[in-house]
Simulated scan of single mutants.
Amino acid sequence: MRAVARDLRLPPLSTVEELCDAVSAHLDRPIRIAPRRMRVGEPSGFVERLPAEDVVHVEQETSGLHRAHIVCHELAHLLCGHLSAPAPPGRTPNSSNCPPSTRTWSGWCSAARTTTTPPKRRPRSSAPS
């Protein structure tokens, strides 16, 4: 992954938008970041592979730092080749060939599922008085 990151030739203090542009150029494919309010049970970010572009959907109701983390995570899925190829133009993607864990609510194949499940709380031990 470090070699891939070096190949992007980013300046040391790049923005998420600059990273997105660099990944887009590296993959020779447009990438658009689409902030939106996710529904309960949806991941906090995922990639939708459309015929003409990749769309990184990201939770808009979170901090800027968390949003940047989500986008970077989803871009890494694209760089590492974790996602299936987009459907050809004019065809609807068929998610039936995807494993159940990679089907998104919209029926698109996407292995990029970043969940924000809160950690389980441990029961408090009662301290002696």
Results as ranks from 00 to 15, higher is better:
P88H: 04
T115V: 09
R2G: 05
A127T: 13
D54W: 06
R124G: 08
P93H: 07
T104S: 09
V55D: 12
I70K: 07
P93C: 11
L8V: 13
D7A: 05
R37D: 10
P119M: 05
G64F: 02
S101N: 05
S96T: 08
P86F: 02
S110D: 07
A68F: 07
P51F: 03
A85L: 10
V40T: 09
L19P: 03
S84T: 12
R2H: 14
V23H: 02
S106M: 08
N97D: 15
R32A: 04
H69N: 03
G45A: 15
A111E: 13
P100L: 02
R113W: 11
S110H: 05
P30K: 09
S44R: 02
L79S: 03
W108G: 00
L65N: 04
A127V: 06
A85P: 03
V16L: 07
A22F: 00
R9D: 10
S84F: 07
S96A: 13
G81T: 08
P43I: 05
P118L: 13
S14T: 12
S44N: 04
A76I: 00
L13A: 07
D28Y: 11
M38F: 04
T114R: 14
Q60P: 00
H73K: 01
L65E: 06
A85M: 03
R113H: 15
E59P: 14
P86H: 10
M38G: 00
R39L: 14
E74T: 10
V4F: 10
I33P: 14
T114Q: 12
E59C: 12
L79I: 02
P30D: 07
R113V: 01
A127C: 08
A5E: 09
K120A: 08
P99C: 15
R124T: 13
P123G: 11
A87V: 12
S126V: 15
H66A: 04
P12D: 14
C20V: 15
P51Y: 07
P93E: 10
R122F: 07
S63R: 07
V16D: 06
A111Y: 09
R124H: 14
G64K: 00
L13W: 05
L27T: 13
R32P: 00
D54T: 05
R124Y: 10
R39P: 01
H82V: 05
R6W: 07
P88E: 08
K120D: 03
G41M: 03
N97M: 14
E17F: 06
S106F: 11
R49F: 00
A87T: 10
A25S: 12
L75N: 11
V71Y: 04
V58L: 14
H77K: 01
V16P: 03
I33Q: 02
S63A: 03
T116R: 12
T15M: 01
S44W: 00
L78P: 04
C72S: 10
S110Q: 03
R122I: 08
K120I: 06
P11M: 09
